[in-house]
Design a protein around this nucleic acid. Structure first.
Lengths: 220, 220
DNA sequence: ACCTGAACACCGTTCAAGT
DNA sequence: ACCTGAACACCGTTCAAGT
């Protein structure tokens, strides 16, 4: 079979595919991408200056999937929708939240998204710096939640594999410490009765922040 | 001079010292710790099962510095104070936020802190799951903020060093894209007139979340 | 009980050399 | 213009061997 031509976008696609098979962003490597493309690792350096540049391109590719809601909706609903879209896109692409955090937004796609979110808030009546701060708050919260989720998933899959003793010991330790030290609330959270689904957890956090924003606005 | 005895706590201290000289958590390595202790890297493995275990011990050491405020204060003030304490401790130890995110809390120190924060919220009248969600929200927000801050600092120091062309190009790109694409709010944030100090940025984000929490509580 | 040295299987990145 | 192979300076981790 004829060998597929190599190009920037080719490498980006292969990188995303490679990342999705990795256990974490840490395990993602140039050499693995090269293997999936059946080329030498050094070839990638003809298209990308370094690993960081490739990671940025991957982040851009993912960010491009995020849709902007209708600007005619009220600002709370617009915010709710963008961040829901972001949540869905991050959830669809394994380790994308890590990717966003590891990577500085300097591209058109990413800066446009940031600008758009600030705009919603400024139009709603917030100051430029309030808007910036609110945007960061939600962004950090979202990224943190997604990262934590993927870590939990990693542990869960570790618990399923009977071989993975690491996940087991970690879990056992939490159980032991929380009973030994009578950490009531940790014990409660272990009986996962009251643990919400990721999406609900996200929605309740976002609601909290939106509530806070509205309280900030109302005095005026 | 007589060679200092090696011990777990010895290694932890040397590790923290080593980390503080690293550009990021990624650059931290077992071999570098060994060099600061003037021992062979393999020696560390007699005291710690693996790198992850060492990182956890480092995270615990830092967490131990976080003071619990007086439980007689009202819940908003208690929350404000713990998270301020956390902010200060994270700020004092370079890359500690990354450390906390990379590491699963299974130790007594860290679980106790989590339990304490949830307790404040439960005593304030929130449900166990609301409390958990609020705690996560603040925690994520804080870690995200600190990580972003240290990344910015890295870039700043890069800009100071005339040699570091990477930081320069990144910065130039943001400037170019935001003017080319007329991203008004990004341009505004570049004229750092309206950018708050880290501490104030943190306080305003925390206030937002606390406001949201209070709005959640008031209907009852 | 504690520590080392060599080894293994990995990294990112460079660069002369090939087509 | 594009791609490779070898090399360099790094990793985490293991394990036989030393004291």
């Amino acid at each position: 079979m004829p060998k597929a031509k190599i190009s920037r976008s080719h490498i980006i696609q292969a990188s995303l595919k490679t990342l999705s098979t990795c256990q974490s962003l840490e395990h993602f490597s140039m050499r693995k991408v090269a293997t999936t493309l059946d080329i030498d690792a050094s070839t990638i350096y003809w298209y990308f200056a370094n690993k960081q540049a490739l990671l940025q391109a991957m982040a851009d590719e993912i960010t491009a999937e995020i849709a902007f809601p209708n600007t005619k909706l009220n600002w709370q609903e617009q915010l709710r929708q963008v961040f829901n879209n972001i949540f869905d896109v991050y959830t669809a692409h394994p380790h994308s939240a890590e990717l966003m955090i590891e990577t500085v937004p300097t591209s058109k796609v990413r800066l446009s998204l940031v600008n758009y979110i600030i705009e919603i808030l400024v139009k709603a009546g917030f100051s430029e710096s309030q808007a910036f701060s609110a945007m960061s708050t939600i962004d950090f919260f979202l990224a943190g939640l997604i990262i934590d989720l993927s870590k939990e998933k990693q542990l869960q899959s570790g618990l399923a594999n009977k071989q993975d003793s690491y996940a087991h010991t970690q879990f056992q330790q939490v159980k032991k410490v929380s009973t030994d030290e009578k950490l009531e609330h940790i014990q409660n959270s272990l009986n996962n009765q009251n643990i919400h689904s990721p999406k609900r957890q996200f929605e309740s956090g976002l609601k909290l922040i939106l509530n806070g924003l509205m309280a900030d606005l109302s005095p005026e």
